[in-house]
Design a protein around this nucleic acid. Structure first.
Lengths: 177, 177
DNA sequence: AGCAGCATGTAAGTGGTTACATGATTGT
DNA sequence: ACAATCATGTAACCACTTACATGCTGCT
């Protein structure tokens, strides 16, 4: 269990909050971790099988394959804690929008403006998504400290992107009067 | 040339600034696009062969395999421009540090603090790296508008991360007096 | 002579997405 | 009865990394 694939961490993490079907695991990851994590079914189901085979999770109804929920076992919790304490750095960045912006000389200022507008837009819609989430969990009981932190991370990043895009757009229009 | 792999875009982009060996293409990408893009040799060399076979780039000394530089052809420039104008969204996010932070309840506040400190640290070192780069290109002639924009993007993000990490650390220590 | 850095490549493996196929359950 | 959504899976493919192997050039 050396480096890389963190899928099982996300899955175990999800199951650490309660029993779920594979489908629900995916929904939980998409809903709750959605702004900084992603898993597809093609990853989740094999991972569930592997974790089950290794005894880190078990089915509520051992025989049935459809509709039975998975729950984390003691050794699963142990594995989760061990994995969480291992250091992990994000993989090398690859932002195709910045790549396009960098070489925007090839296309001219109109294309650059369009790109920036698009990035601005996506930051803004991210922000309003976060606002919705915040409205929901602020009403719930606290103890969600860490969840609030990851959410505010998203907000900060989106805000910074918005400001950056605006500054760039301003620069571009002031240049080409 | 439907979706996905943007490696050839980065390679063509690099070669659009002048002829280079494969080795130099890699160095150029690492040095100049480094804070938002990454390619390994295992990607670059096959891509160069493919682009050459398709006539998008050519060798300065057709026979020699080692030491001869590649230069972009007219159709290569065309392909670059076409690719740059195609829309592209970044792939789904996957930040293992946020994943760890989110489930930090499993490890306790000390681990969370360590994680935040580490993220703070990496943001700070990114910032000082950008400062170095900026010192170099501000002295050069302007016309580097887009390069400056991608650089300031990195700076803004790093600054936002720094502030966020500080705020989180403050929150954690005020909580556990 | 020997080392550092330039230069080129490939094979194996991993991590992940996509597309497809199937069927159960619930609501209208 | 039909549609939507819940639910599970797999095979093919893609993008990318890693590790390895090789040799050249220039410096000291």
């Amino acid at each position: 269990m050396a480096r890389s694939s963190q899928t099982f961490v996300a899955v175990l993490g999800a199951l650490s909050t309660g029993p779920m079907t594979g489908y629900e695991v995916r929904a939980a990851i998409a809903d709750v971790l959605g702004h900084f994590w992603h898993e597809s079914f093609g990853q989740i189901y094999p991972t569930l099988h592997q974790l089950e085979a290794d005894g880190y999770i078990r089915r509520s109804i051992p025989g049935r394959t459809s509709g039975s929920t998975f729950e984390i076992t003691d050794s699963g919790l142990e594995l989760l804690r061990a994995s969480l304490s291992e250091p992990a750095q994000p993989r090398p960045p690859r932002d195709p929008r910045l790549l396009r912006l960098f070489f925007a000389e090839q296309l001219g200022p109109a294309a650059a403006r369009a790109l920036l507008a698009q990035m601005r837009q996506s930051a803004q819609s991210a922000l309003s998504e976060y606002a919705l989430i915040r409205a929901e969990i602020d009403l719930a009981q606290p103890g969600e400290v860490y969840r609030a932190m990851t959410l505010s991370y998203g907000e900060q990043m989106a805000r910074a992107q918005l400001e950056w895009a605006d500054a760039c757009l301003a620069e571009l229009s002031s240049e080409s009067i």
